[in-house]
């Protein structure tokens, strides 16, 4: 019924599944200081509400244009920002490899983030789609860009922890 030979795209997806699992573990285990290391030095990371994406409006909820800005977000998260204590749980699915070049791969994937606050209730915090560009450097795969479009336009209370 199935071809036993793996296509290049399928082999790429296997490696990418591991990469995304490591990324999610870093965030869900609150190792936020390690999060910027999943990105290249000049990576871009931007979250758009779908109504802006669809309407052609450029304002983003959260945007970083290099790795240092990702690190600043984490410093602010740890030292400055005040927010309800919470635990995020990512579920990433429907990973597709949309372009496979020699040194870059492009993917799309769906995500859902369930958030649990101190009262012990878990709520759906955000769902959306990520469109990523991933490259390989000496230490492994890295995001060159994450362009995330979220459907859940109403941000509940606030958004502080990266996804």
């Amino acid at each position: 019924m199935f071809d036993t030979e793996l296509s290049p795209t399928q082999r790429a997806r296997l490696a990418l599944e591991d990469f995304y699992a490591d990324y999610v573990a870093c965030l869900d285990e609150d190792r936020l200081e390690d999060w910027p290391d999943f990105f290249t030095e000049d990576a871009s990371y931007v979250l758009y509400p779908r109504e802006n994406e669809d309407g052609g409006y450029p304002i983003a909820l959260f945007s970083c244009e290099n790795k240092r800005q990702l690190q600043d977000r984490i410093t602010s998260h740890r030292k400055a920002n005040i927010f309800p204590a919470h635990w995020n749980r990512h579920v990433i699915s429907s990973l597709r490899v949309t372009a496979l070049g020699g040194d870059q791969v492009e993917t799309t994937s769906n995500y859902a983030i369930f958030q649990t606050r101190q009262d012990g209730e878990s709520k759906l915090f955000q769902v959306g789609q990520a469109r990523d560009k991933i490259v390989r450097d000496n230490s492994g795969l890295k995001f060159q860009s994450r362009h995330i479009v979220y459907d859940t336009s109403r941000v509940q209370t606030l958004f502080v922890t990266p996804i």
Binding site: P49, N52, Y57, I59, R154, V155
Partner: peptide, 8 residues
């Protein structure tokens, strides 16, 4: 107009 963000 550059777009909107919603907070609840």
């Amino acid at each position: 107009y550059l777009g909107c963000l919603r907070q609840y």
